[in-house]
Design a protein around this nucleic acid. Sequence first.
DNA 1: ATTGTATATTGCAATGTTACGATTAAATAA
DNA 2: TTATTTAATCGTAACATTGCAATATACAAT
Lengths: 109, 109
Amino acid sequence: MGLTRTEIFSAEQNQLATLLKALAHPARIAILQRILASNTCICGDLVEELGLAQATISQHLKELKTAGIIQGTIEGVSVCYCINPVTWKLIETQMGAFLGAYIQEADCC
Amino acid sequence: MGLTRTEIFSAEQNQLATLLKALAHPARIAILQRILASNTCICGDLVEELGLAQATISQHLKELKTAGIIQGTIEGVSVCYCINPVTWKLIETQMGAFLGAYIQEADCC
DNA sequence: ATTGTATATTGCAATGTTACGATTAAATAA
DNA sequence: TTATTTAATCGTAACATTGCAATATACAAT
């Protein structure tokens, strides 16, 4: 049918999948790394630094914003983006629990 | 154009994005959690446990296998899947570095 | 050989994603 | 007011993903 059957999974599974999906693109990883590096908020210089069109960057920023990973405030003519600490912590917690559940045993296959 | 422009990003950014993409689906998270829970290898009981068709499960398993996250060996009639420790560790390392790069400061926006 | 069981593969419909040019909106500057 | 600047939105082309029925493959048992 072509659309994910979210009804059959738990809220946690769907939430983690949604968050990871928002991170699962090199452009969005690059954008976030840029924000992480210049801890202070950055704006649309991304367009110059990454080699993507302005419309494309804006679209990726929107996706990160919709997922709650970043937040933005209007700063004069430009817009200032930064990490949303709550969601970032959520990702750390959820991913930590997920990845940490693996206990390596004697190889079975 | 419709296809990710991987050439303009670093190998690390592309690799992390690819790994996260493989994890970014509730069915694949559920499959991995199932493998993590019953540490020993599990087979196609997934079809019964998750409410998805056999072809769909097989497809998700293939994606996880292609990404190197799981590995499978033929065990008589059925196939035995388990976590690939190397890739799992890689995800932990890469995600840890990525998420850990955030130092929360006085809110700027 | 034939049957049964467990997975994989193929083909396809419905939907989602990525990228970009063009346009619009909003705020400042001249 | 009229530019200029910055970012969002619209529209669209090219792919990609998701899910499933149907079919194929591979092995084991009879």
